[in-house]
Amino acid sequence: MDTKNVWFITGASKGLGLSLVKQLLQQGYNVAATSRNIEDLSRAVGQADNHFLPLSVDLKTEASVEAAINATIAQFGRIDVVVNNAGYGLLGSIEELTDQEARENFDVNVFGSLNVVRSAMPHLREQQSGHIINISSIGGFTGNFPGFGIYCATKFAVEGFSESLAAEAKAFGINVTIVSPGYFRTDFLAASSLGVPSRQIDAYEAVRASQQAHQTQINGNQPGDPEKAVAALIRIASEQNPPLHLFLGQDAYDMAYTKINAVKNELENWKAMTVSTGFDAESVIA
């Protein structure tokens, strides 16, 4: 990919987003990056030149997102790669998480990304090219994580609308890739990025055990190297035929196949019931 191409990245002040911005700038790309706090973003990136445009954006406000897209066009003349990276984890059982806590997670993880897509698509359609990369999670492919039901639901939603978006955008020369990472050693499991319920129900022993494990054992010991994940993102953006689904990490690969095999087994075990629910041929003829 031409290093004059322009990347637009949300959630860029930490984690994978920050690593991505830094690698792109090192390679000479033009980068517009967003965060809720522009000072934190600029300080974290540590670079101020014509290749880097830091933007303060409230992803939940459509006008704020649209202003950021327009500022990027004004600065660089176009947008080539959009990365919806902003989001946060939420750990709590379905019962104990409040309506407000659940909706807030959807507002950022799902509707924030949709605001970006809606604002970017007119420009990508006009130039008949582009690549939208939506950062999901292995939790967007399998929900077998006690305590992560709402978070998984947000990422399942991202994967669902991304598959439809890919079908819609193909006619305009626009690619879509869903990235589903496993556990990568970022601050995703730190208190600043992982929400917990305001009221906890002790009866959910599996959820409390999961919470304890993620906050004290898994955090800081994740097997995935974020710098390698970022290099993979840059590589797929240069591919002529990039994947719709990209899983990152051996753990994500293994968990994906565990679900695929489980679904295949259930399909076959219950095939007779599944295929018995249509109208009989005689009824159709009659």
Rank of each mutant, 00 (worst) to 15 (best):
P226I: 05
C152W: 08
N265I: 06
L233G: 02
A203S: 14
T34Q: 02
Q215T: 12
Q75E: 14
M255S: 10
A203G: 04
G17D: 07
D99Q: 13
A71V: 07
E126L: 12
I132Q: 06
G89T: 03
F156P: 02
D80R: 02
E95L: 01
V31Y: 00
D187G: 14
N5F: 05
Q215I: 04
D251H: 01
Q212A: 14
D80A: 06
K170M: 10
P243F: 04
N109Y: 03
A272E: 15
G140P: 00
I138R: 02
Q75D: 08
N269W: 09
Q23D: 12
T186P: 01
R118S: 11
P146F: 03
Y29I: 03
R103I: 05
V65S: 05
V108G: 09
N115W: 01
Q27E: 14
A166R: 14
E95H: 06
A213L: 09
A86L: 00
G112T: 00
Y151M: 01
A206F: 07
L16I: 15
N219I: 02
T274A: 14
R43A: 11
L55N: 06
G160A: 15
K155I: 07
Q222N: 04
I135D: 00
I133S: 02
Q212F: 12
D225S: 02
F279P: 15
Q26H: 12
L91C: 15
I38Q: 11
V158W: 03
N109T: 06
N37G: 01
N221G: 08
D225K: 01
A272V: 11
Q23R: 13
T61I: 14
G139Y: 03
V45W: 08
P54D: 08
E239T: 05
A171S: 15
E95Q: 13
E227Y: 06
Y88D: 08
Q200L: 12
G173Y: 04
L114T: 09
T98M: 10
R36L: 04
I260G: 07
A256M: 12
N221S: 09
S129V: 07
K22V: 13
V110G: 03
F8P: 00
V179E: 01
S64R: 04
G92A: 05
T98P: 10
V196M: 13
A167W: 09
V83L: 02
I9E: 11
R235M: 11
N50C: 10
L244E: 09
A286R: 15
Q100I: 10
M255E: 13
Y88K: 07
Q215R: 13
S198T: 13
N269C: 10
H51Q: 13
N175P: 02
L91N: 14
G149K: 10
F111T: 08
D58M: 05
C152M: 10
K264P: 05
V110Q: 04
M273E: 13
A262T: 08
